[in-house]
Design a binder for these strands. Structure first.
Ligand SMILES: [Mn+2]
Ligand SMILES: [Mn+2]
Ligand SMILES: [Zn+2]
Ligand SMILES: [Zn+2]
Lengths: 143, 143
DNA sequence: GGGTTTATTGATAATGAATATCATTATTGT
DNA sequence: ACAATAATGATATTCATTATCAATAAACCC
């Protein structure tokens, strides 16, 4: 039963906020959990549409946003292209290596860098909350 | 004579590419050099407009882009807000601390982080070209 | 200088992603 | 079942960015 816990968390968040559980939310969340990470609204909409052509783009968009609010998902914006969403729950924080040729995303994490970032912020009287590190270049296949 | 060298570089780039030097380019470049860093197209357009109301928004936009192509300027995109442009020439590479409250940009650089990024990329068979590190949080005044 | 070529300009339109609107539908608590 | 109201889905709007195009003006040649 993959994703059961995630579904409960989402459902819980919805109740807490006085929102309502709907058939569409369930369908969209399940599709999101089954799909690739780094999916756009449009991608997810197209997947959902296959089995549920009655569900609209706006609903997919709204629910992805809601998943972000609930902490389940995270929105990633790269340049001017469409925002991508990835499942956050159950995944450690990570940054991305992004191939300039094929668009591949490689997830990485480096504790030393993370710690140095905090130190760097503090040295500048700055209280860090979150950060974004993206390294652009060429992946193994494309170099 | 601040900016003389920059102007020559821009002018040189224009000739190399078979483009043309214009009155507007000169005015826009000078305004950019005199203005704050981290300026938007609209900001620069409004500055230029004061003395030169005949110069259009599109021309300011195109020339900021051209400055980027020539390596003089750099475009910074934060979230979905308007792109900002900063003078690159004569400034070392740096990253930004960005205040979530007042929007302040603090320029920082950390050699250790820079080196670890290269190492991290290489460990993933990835050839790094450029990167973007943004730390969001609260500045001294806003924390 | 005069003439020719064509890059540039400026006003405006087009684009595209994200979000807002709103009448209708569906969920929740009673 | 009922009332209240959140959610939906189709569509419109927003907003930054980029494209279009007729008019203008650099740059080069003579
Ligand atoms: Mn990180
Ligand atoms: Mn850096
Ligand atoms: Zn690649
Ligand atoms: Zn601040």
């Amino acid at each position: 039963m993959p994703g059961v816990e995630v579904k409960e968390i989402f459902s819980g968040h919805i109740k807490e906020k006085g929102l309502r559980n709907t058939r569409q939310r369930e369908i969209i969340l399940e599709a999101f959990l089954s799909a690739n990470k780094h999916i756009t609204v449009e991608d997810l909409f197209n997947i959902v549409k296959k089995k549920h052509p009655e569900i609209g783009y706006a609903t997919v968009h709204r629910n992805l946003k809601l998943m972000c609010e609930s902490g389940l998902a995270e929105e990633i914006k790269i340049g001017t292209s469409k925002a991508k969403f990835e499942l956050k729950y159950g995944h450690e924080h990570h940054d991305h290596l992004i191939c300039l040729n094929c668009g591949k995303f490689i997830e990485v994490n480096d504790e030393k860098i993370e710690k140095l970032q905090v130190k760097l912020a503090e040295e500048n009287d700055f209280q860090p909350v979150r950060h974004k590190l993206e390294i652009y270049g060429f992946c193994k296949k494309c170099r």
